[in-house]
Design a protein around this nucleic acid. Structure first.
Length: 718
DNA sequence: AGAAAGGTTGTTTTT
DNA sequence: CAACCTTTCT
């Protein structure tokens, strides 16, 4: 045997080895949860480079999160005798962003284009709606936003957008959509969808450019293929056309991004569209106990649209699944903590062996309260993403404007932040000037400074702002990114805002800013760093899960979506109630329910040793306490895998109802009541019934207040 | 101009 | 319940 020869047999099972060795032609791998997908992909890359002597820069590897990509790179580095420098590996969005930067000209863009996130998109949409006089309350910008995104996900242009007569939003959507596209183009900005759509357009229009990439990517590997959307599928077909060496790996049971345009049909169509596709299955699970896997399978088999898999595990039965019914979400968090403590004590587990998964981010708060009350270390993954926090976005807005002053959205964001006396009237005057002179807003400011229409004061303020930005624009190449960001935060006075104010909140925000500084440093220290523009791009494309690592010993709190691809010794899935999981917006038809069911399946298969499921009889939602109903998924699962346990009686619920009725009748209009904080007042109106009764009370001290009787804790005065 | 208070609104999930 | 928007007040 040669010195550096890699021992494929030792590291792969026969199923996996076959896939690794089968290098040429289209390959579709249906890989069950925990079957070693990442291992197969990394070894395939290694095999191509080591055995087949393929230069790394001829291999394209696409993932869905940066975290997955980073993990793969890490694993590749651990393979002895492998040099993979030059390998194209990253998320669809980052890889095609890179390509779009190179070919920006062909799409009518400058290569320093900015990437707009949901927030920016919404601002653009709101602006346009206002311009068209559609700011009536019955049309929500968010609805339009969703519709535009949906269209773009499906590669539908504004011209192709079909107006359904029965849909009251469609007409406005079409109008706003085309205006929105124009706005982005005019401001050298793209949204997330464009990062995929624009390359498709370029490839369609310019065969020579397409050829360049077809020649380059001799081998293409795709992870999480079940989550690809139409644009991604198109990109794959286009780029792989020459060599047709494309290997896609996915699990139709784990497709949970349908709402983002992912098409499970991509898996089904693959064999049809890529002729001569070889189909493989990975059915050996290495992660979960028989009980966990059994429960997961008993659930997912209710889905009709799926490829049948027979997942097996070498692992033993393990512990049965715990299912617990609690009275409310507070009790739920207490129960979670008790179990964590118990396991840590009895089984010597670490905090980082645990994850609590929920359907919506909003559920994290009550859990956080519980955890901090008990001083249990925890990390919330996601929720408010770091780079989307206001204090961070404001600084980034400065950087974006410095990088490209044409970015109107970000310019408006900072023109008066921190407050520098440039108010609404001044801004709209500047806008007018810009429009009249047919220049962008930034140049509008330049003219505004000289314009007589402004009071001396305003002109002074505008001038100060303009020269501030100009100054940084001129020095941005000369000083380090580090220095740039730090002096900017000082000079603008942003640092003072947070340091002066001594509140807990502002201190937290300042800490976030310090974290931003260190992320700038980190980025600058990277060898391949791309300066200001590169940093901004990284920031746009990063996701919450990317920054999270298991190294700190704490319990992980996250949405089930965020948990995809991860594994933990013990997993809690909480809030298993109708309307929450499955979520009510997703209960309309069977295909939506199937996606929710897959989501639950993804959650359960994250667990290696122990799975806990729970739901609460009452839960506070929308600021009101609602009586809940047990999730249908709990009725579907095979109870043989579940540990039987005495359950709390439902009588408590009835007691509550009885108690509430006489109480709500106690108050009448005109009567006097006393409130702990507001003092004495007179009831002037009552609305709602039962526990949702609201009252308007006119207090002597503070005037009229609308109160929820249940919480107001009013004393009745005779 | 800008802060503060009030009322209203609505909540998935994310690259 | 909180985030957001509008109005109101200084």
């Amino acid at each position: 045997m040669q010195k550096n020869k890699f021992d494929w047999d030792k590291n792969l099972n026969p199923e996996q080895k076959e896939i690794v060795l089968h290098t040429d032609g289209p390959i579709l791998v249906i890989a069950g949860a925990g079957s070693g997908k990442t291992r197969v992909i990394t070894y395939k890359i290694a095999y191509l480079i080591i055995e087949k002597k393929i230069p790394p820069d001829k291999i394209l590897t696409l993932t869905f999160t940066n975290k997955a990509a980073n993990e793969m790179v890490e694993r590749l580095h651990s393979i002895k005798g492998l040099n993979c420098s030059g390998l194209w590996i990253g998320t669809f969005h980052s890889i095609f962003c890179k390509i779009l930067r190179r070919e920006a000209n062909s799409a009518g863009y400058k290569n320093n284009f900015n990437i707009y996130d949901e927030n920016d998109q919404l601002i653009v949409i709101k602006d346009i709606m206002k311009k068209f006089g559609h700011s009536d309350k019955n049309i929500l910008p968010k609805t339009i936003y969703r519709k535009i995104n949906y269209a773009k996900n499906h590669l539908i242009s504004p011209e192709e957008y079909v107006i359904n007569e029965w849909d009251q939003y469609d007409k406005v959507t079409k109008l706003v959509f085309s205006e929105y596209e124009r706005f982005l183009r005019n401001h050298n900005a793209v949204d997330f969808n464009d990062l995929l759509i624009k390359p498709v357009e370029i490839f369609d229009k310019k065969p020579l450019i397409l050829k360049k990439y077809q020649n380059r990517f001799k081998y293409i590997l795709v992870d999480e293929f079940q989550d690809t959307n139409l644009a991604q599928y198109r990109l794959l077909s286009l780029v792989s056309q020459k060599y047709k060496n494309i290997c896609v790996i996915g699990d139709d049971d784990q497709s949970i991004y349908g709402w983002r345009g992912a098409e499970i049909s991509n898996i089904l169509n693959f064999e049809r569209d890529f002729q001569g596709t070889k189909l493989f299955k990975l059915e050996q699970n290495y992660r979960s106990t028989k009980n966990i896997l059994g429960l997961a399978q008993s659930l997912v088999k209710y889905n009709k649209k799926r490829k049948i898999k027979n997942l097996r595990t070498f692992r033993g039965e393990g512990e049965k699944i715990s299912l617990k019914i609690l009275n409310d979400e507070r009790e739920e968090s207490v129960w979670i903590i008790q179990n964590i403590k118990k396991e840590i004590f009895k089984k010597k587990k670490r905090m980082s062996d645990f994850a609590v998964l929920y359907r919506t981010n909003a559920q994290s708060r009550i859990l956080e309260e519980g955890f901090s009350r008990d001083s249990i270390p925890y990390t919330v993954v996601g929720c408010v993403r770091f780079y989307e926090r206001k204090e961070i976005k404001d600084i980034l807005a400065y950087l974006r404007v410095i990088s490209d002053p044409n970015d109107e959205i970000n310019l408006k964001r900072i023109i008066n932040y921190p407050a520098r006396g440039i108010g609404k009237t001044t801004i709209s005057k500047v806008e007018e000037i810009a429009k009249r002179r047919e220049v962008n807003l930034y140049n509008g400011i330049k003219f505004g400074i000289k314009s007589e229409t402004f009071p001396e004061r305003s002109r002074e303020h505008l001038k100060m702002f303009y020269s501030l930005i100009e100054k940084y624009r001129s020095i941005k190449e000369k000083i380090s990114l580090n220095e740039l960001v730090r002096t900017l935060v000082e000079e603008t006075g942003i640092s003072d805002i947070f340091r002066k104010e001594g509140t807990q909140e502002s201190r937290g925000k300042w800490e976030n800013i310090l974290e931003l500084f260190s992320s700038v440093s980190d980025y600058s220290n990277r060898e391949d760093n791309g300066g200001l523009g590169g940093f901004l791009e990284m920031v746009s494309l990063i996701s919450d899960i990317d920054g999270w690592n298991k190294k700190q010993d704490s319990v992980a709190l996250m949405t089930v979506h965020n948990a995809k691809g991860l594994e933990f010794s013990s997993v809690f899935i909480v809030g298993l109630e109708e309307g929450l999981f499955p979520l009510y917006n997703y209960m309309n038809d069977e295909s939506e329910i199937e996606e929710e069911r897959r989501l639950f399946y993804v959650g359960t298969t994250r667990a290696k040793d122990k799975l806990y499921l729970s739901y609460a009889l009452k839960r506070m939602r929308f600021g009101e306490i609602k009586i809940t109903k047990c999730s249908r998924f709990l009725e579907e699962i095979d109870r043989n895998f579940v540990e039987s346990e005495a359950e709390p009686v439902i009588i408590k619920e009835r007691k509550l109802k009885k108690k509430l009725h006489p109480e709500s009748n106690k108050y009448n209009i005109g009567k006097l009541v006393a409130h702990e904080m507001f003092g004495i007042g007179r009831i002037i109106d009552i609305e709602g019934a039962g526990e949702f009764t609201k009252m308007m009370v006119d207090f002597d001290a503070v005037g009229k207040k609308k109160l929820l009787v249940k919480y107001a804790n009013l004393k009745y005065i005779n």
